[in-house]
Design a protein around this nucleic acid. Structure first.
Lengths: 203, 203
DNA sequence: TGTAAATCGATGTGATCACATTGCTTTGCT
DNA sequence: AGCAAAGCAATGTGATCACATCGATTTACA
């Protein structure tokens, strides 16, 4: 035991992210089925060997992309919720989070296409399913907590159950998001439906 | 012009449906990515050659399975809506249709897993997207029509817009359906949320 | 600076896939 | 009965894929 294990190089994480971003780009415009070593390498502008080096199994590549997508979305939402100052009330935060689940520009569109692809993959892939379940549990808990805050200060209509309504709101947002993605319902109208649903919970 | 064209044999449609059913079974438990000539042939218990004969291109096979799935769902819903007699009111029909969008047994679970798979495929496949758009347009129109009937007889709350609410209800149902499919929310609770949403539209 | 690990491009390999081709059998019409 | 189309199994083909292997180079730390 004369040597410690050598950690990965300083650029390691950045390179990994570049590759994961390439996967996200491919998923966003050609779907999960179009993801392959060569396609990812071409998209990222690196050699297929490098892709294989960082992700020795395709499954790992997909999982990394999933987590990368979640990280990017979280960052985007965090930026939105703190932009209006730290004094944003629970209802405002709730509204922002739900609104971000509906595509409204090229970036959110890509993010949500990716998310939709992963939700389908979860049905046949336990690893993805587990990650998604954790993800949803966190999201539902977070929104329920926001509703409980407003409930404590008497802003909610009586009889509203935060845990149930949190799930309902996210389900509605995602259902609407999908309609926007395939073009059966305009983004603006979807946002309106969401706002109506939120208003319905408040006095 | 001494000979007319020979039509397909009598068993033609039945054989096609058997193969399409095999595709649906595979999609339901292994996902769209697991669909291949050999897998379908094995599932259907026929030779790969027969699969290829009936569906000379994979795309046609997928499309046929999609339509087959829709046909089966329509049949199932039609059976439910007429089971209670022809005097079922618009609200009852609306409730049945929406309830059928949420899995509650092995059959509906399989159907809705398949549907979820196709919704994801639509994001990267224009042919599927077009079919889904038509499908949704019909569904939304149908539910809006039911709401309008109850609106005409004064049963709806004032201010309810049938076209908008029809979309909202289906979006909610599908979002909840997905949660049931991946196991983050129980089927019974999902149905409750749906019933609550429907009640909210009525006086 | 020596050395082991990390990096990563290049190339190989076996599997699988969609689809083509071929030829035999069956079906359905006249 | 005769005949053309339909049905269908078997086999071939070229592409693509995930992953293995190898070798050269660079990096990071003692």
């Amino acid at each position: 035991m004369t040597h410690r294990t050598r950690g990965p190089g300083a650029q390691h994480e950045q390179r990994r992210n570049e590759i994961a971003d390439a996967v996200l780009a491919i998923v966003a415009d050609r779907g999960l089925a179009a993801v392959s070593q060569t396609a990812v390498a071409a998209q990222a502008g690196v050699s297929p060997g490098r892709v294989q080096h960082y992700f020795p199994a395709k499954q790992k590549l997909i999982e990394a992309a999933f987590e990368r997508g979640n990280a990017l979305s979280s960052t985007r939402i965090a930026a939105k919720t703190t932009a209006n100052g730290a004094d944003a009330g629970p209802r405002e935060v709730l509204t922002v989070v739900l609104t971000e689940l509906v595509p409204y520009d090229a970036v959110t569109r890509a993010h949500l296409r990716v998310r939709q692809s992963f939700t389908a993959a979860a049905l046949a892939d336990d690893a993805i399913a587990g990650r998604l379940r954790d993800d949803y549990a966190r999201l539902h808990t977070r929104l329920a907590e926001l509703l409980r805050q407003d409930q404590a200060t008497g802003r909610l209509r009586p009889g509203v159950e935060p845990d149930q309504e949190a799930v309902t709101l996210v389900a509605l947002a995602e259902g609407l998001a999908y309609y926007v993605l395939i073009g059966v319902y305009p983004a603006g109208a979807a946002r309106e439906r969401l706002h109506t649903a939120i208003s319905g919970l408040y006095r």
